[in-house]
Computed example of a mutant assay.
Amino acid sequence: MPVDQRGPSDTPFGQPCTFERWPDVPLRALAGADDRFFPLDLQRRLAAQRLGVDVDVIPGGHLVALGHAVELADRLTIYASGLP
């Protein structure tokens, strides 16, 4: 690893999440239809259980931003247009 680049943080998996509820903001769950790392059924189940929302599905796999950047940008634009 180059000297000017640091390694990944231990924080995400080294400390428990301490907030008690999600902030009072609109939540969305977006998933690639062909994600083999986190299959769509798993993402749907977790979004429903943990967030209380349905998953919006777009074409693509685990790295949807690389393979379907336009579709992702379009969907994020739609989400942003609905914000106050």
Rank of each mutant, 00 (worst) to 15 (best):
D35Y: 01
Q15G: 00
A73N: 15
C17F: 09
H68A: 01
T77A: 15
L51K: 14
L63M: 11
V53A: 04
G32L: 06
T77Y: 12
A31K: 02
R44F: 08
V3M: 10
V57K: 02
G67W: 00
D74C: 09
V25L: 14
D24A: 13
L76C: 13
V57G: 03
D24Q: 13
P26S: 13
P2R: 15
D34N: 12
P26Y: 05
C17E: 09
G7V: 09
T11G: 00
L40Q: 07
V25K: 10
D35A: 03
G7P: 09
L66R: 11
R21F: 07
S9P: 04
P8Q: 07
D4S: 08
P26D: 13
H68M: 00
P8R: 04
L46M: 15
R44Q: 14
E71P: 02
G52M: 09
W22V: 15
P23H: 10
P16G: 10
R50H: 14
E20M: 10
T18S: 14
T77H: 14
P23Y: 10
T18P: 06
A48E: 14
D34L: 08
M1C: 10
Q5F: 13
F13L: 11
G67Q: 01
R6Y: 15
Q49T: 02
F13K: 15
G60M: 05
L30R: 12
V25R: 09
I58R: 03
A31D: 04
R36Y: 12
V53E: 01
V53C: 07
D41V: 03
H62K: 04
R6S: 14
Q15D: 00
L30V: 14
E20V: 14
V25T: 13
Y79V: 14
P39T: 07
L63K: 01
L30M: 12
W22P: 05
F19G: 04
P26L: 08
L30G: 07
D54V: 03
D56E: 13
R28K: 11
A29T: 01
A31T: 05
L63W: 10
P23T: 09
L66N: 11
R50P: 01
S81V: 02
G7W: 05
H68V: 00
G61M: 05
S81F: 05
A29I: 02
E71F: 03
V57I: 14
L66A: 01
D54L: 06
T18D: 15
D10C: 08
L72V: 00
L83A: 13
P12E: 13
R6P: 07
A48P: 06
R28H: 15
G60E: 01
H62E: 03
Q5I: 11
F38Q: 09
P2N: 05
L66P: 00
A48V: 03
Y79R: 00
R75L: 07
P84K: 06
H68S: 01
I78D: 14
W22G: 08
H62R: 05
D56W: 03
R6H: 15
D34G: 05
R28S: 15
L27R: 11
L63T: 07
R6V: 15
Q49V: 04
F37D: 09
H68G: 00
Q5R: 11
D56C: 05
G7L: 12
G52D: 12
R28Q: 14
V53H: 01
V64P: 02
A47M: 03
G52S: 08
A48M: 08
I78E: 13
D10E: 09
